[in-house]
Simulated assay, not measured.
Amino acid sequence: MSTTSTVTAFDRVPVIDISGLYSDRLEDRLQVAEALGNAARAIGFLYVVGHPVAQTTIEGLRKATKAYFAQPLETKMRDYIGASKTHKGFVPRGEEVYGKGVPDLKEAFDIGFEVPADHPLVLGGTPLLGPNEWPPLDGFREAASRYYDEVFTLGHKLFQGFALALGLDEHYFDEMAKAPPSKLRLIHYPFNADAEDAPGIGAHTDYECFTILLADNPGLEVLNAEGSWIDVPPIEGAFVVNIGDMLEVMTNGAFVATAHRVRKVSQERYSFPLFYACDYHTRIEPLPQFNDGERRYEAMAIGEHMYAQALQTYQYLKRKVEAGELSLPQRSRKPSSFGHLKQQSMND
């Protein structure tokens, strides 16, 4: 299959039926993989249908999320991410700022891959890893855990499809995501009667390998090769999948981590992205078949890249860096220095 990026001035995001990935016939899996690869090279975004995530699981998460965010702010702040040991929990409005942008009028609750406290990586002090810290809200943990498990399993299958699309054995990536810093975000955009049709979350790329998104209202926009913003509205029964920084590195730019943003809209909106990552210490560098004589990316540890981005985005972590309590990993990249935003230089 092609190893060359063909980013286009697309005006829509394709819908791909991935049911063939679950077929016993290799030719069925290859057919889906080809469609996944074409979208990853030309757009960096796609919808997937034909997945096995149960509608009851999705509805359970929506119900639990609405119940959580309906609580008073003082109650939610008991779960403040800045007080957690593993960068998980409640994210209040204004906590995240991308680059030089303004804080977003949204709130979130961040959940990670459940890594037990006695895991060697946790005992070794690996950032971003450890047990989740659950709020004492009836049914919340059960609903969020069920959704996480089903969508993470979907991500495992998609990674096999991307492997086939890259001409690799479909199990090539299987051992790379055993205890990853893969985050599920429950995001709430409150009703805003004063909102104008303008950017919300600033233009950015996602740090990980790829993202699996469920949203219940419009607002997501994707940047095409001509610099135009293209709407990616919700489709019933579909997830939005987009390529992240790490797959762009592994493919030496053939797969593109396309910049995207959330437009400010007046209606209340819930969004559930799961960021599928490899294990923290996985060394990410261009795969051999993408060696065209021009190495566009330095090798990096995926966890260090993710941690560096968080240190430059979350206000509580930025304060710790400024105070000298934490420091950026060497050769950290600025936020959103991939995809159409890759003209930003690396930090010294």
Rank of each mutant, 00 (worst) to 15 (best):
H156F: 09
Q160Y: 11
P199F: 05
L166R: 11
G200H: 01
E226S: 12
I201K: 01
D174W: 09
V232E: 03
S182C: 04
D169F: 08
F210P: 07
H156N: 11
Y172I: 00
H156L: 10
I187C: 06
L154R: 10
N192K: 06
D174C: 10
L154M: 10
L223V: 10
E221T: 06
G227S: 09
G227L: 08
E175Q: 15
K157M: 13
S182Y: 01
E236R: 14
L186Q: 07
I187L: 09
L164R: 03
Y207C: 02
P199M: 05
L186R: 00
P218A: 03
H188E: 09
A203C: 10
R185K: 11
A163I: 11
G237P: 08
I212L: 06
A203N: 09
N217W: 05
L158Y: 12
D194N: 10
L168C: 03
L223T: 09
G227C: 08
I201H: 03
T211W: 00
C209K: 04
P181F: 00
L184P: 03
L214A: 10
L184I: 04
A198F: 09
F210V: 08
P180K: 00
A203E: 13
M176A: 13
L223M: 10
D197E: 14
D169N: 12
I212R: 04
P190R: 04
L214C: 02
A215G: 06
C209Y: 06
A198T: 14
L223K: 11
E170Q: 15
P233G: 01
A179N: 09
T211Y: 01
A177W: 05
K178L: 04
N224S: 14
K157I: 14
V232F: 04
N224D: 15
I235E: 01
L154W: 14
V222W: 13
Y189V: 07
P218L: 05
A215T: 01
